[in-house]
């Protein structure tokens, strides 16, 4: 099974993981990681690396980060070559939201088995899940 890791500034990743378990129960090979202001940058990089190693059971890890261009994203970039050279595949999707994580966790065992398909599904679900109420119900003012 493909591993899933959510990485954010502060507690958002942990909170998102909690919301996920509220909706669909506990998930295996699913973890959250937060970056905090007082933390050593190298220590964070190391925790990030260890999480990937733990989550990768041979099919790679899909990493969700909060912001494009920010620290969780940049640290993924710093790690990607090393991980690939050690045969750990990762894909990193930015702008994480709850719908995309739910979709991935429920699809990864069944319909979609490769990391290269899974990250595309994450991106399309993430984008398509953003709606506006009045537009949706046809009550545009």
């Amino acid at each position: 099974m493909i591993g899933c890791l959510v990485v954010s500034h502060g507690k958002m990743a942990e909170g998102l993981k909690e919301s996920v378990s509220l909706i669909m129960g506990e998930n295996k090979q699913f973890a959250a990681l937060g970056f905090f202001e007082e933390e050593d940058f190298e220590a964070f990089k190391n925790r990030f690396y260890q999480k990937i190693i733990q989550l990768d059971h041979g099919n790679g890890v899909l990493v969700f980060v909060d912001l494009f261009g920010a620290t969780p994203y940049n640290v993924s970039a710093m790690l990607v070559n090393r991980l690939h050279s050690e045969n750990h595949s990762i894909r990193v999707v930015t702008g994480v939201n709850l719908p995309m994580v739910l979709e991935i966790l429920s699809s990864r065992n069944t319909q979609v088995n490769s990391l290269d398909e899974l990250y595309l599904l994450a991106m399309s679900t993430g984008k398509e899940s953003i709606k506006e109420l009045l537009d949706e119900v046809g009550l545009k003012q």
Partner: peptide, 11 residues
């Protein structure tokens, strides 16, 4: 800044 360009800088 050890993180160089990052979220706060960007936003």
């Amino acid at each position: 800044d050890e993180r160089l360009i990052h979220g706060q800088v960007m936003t």
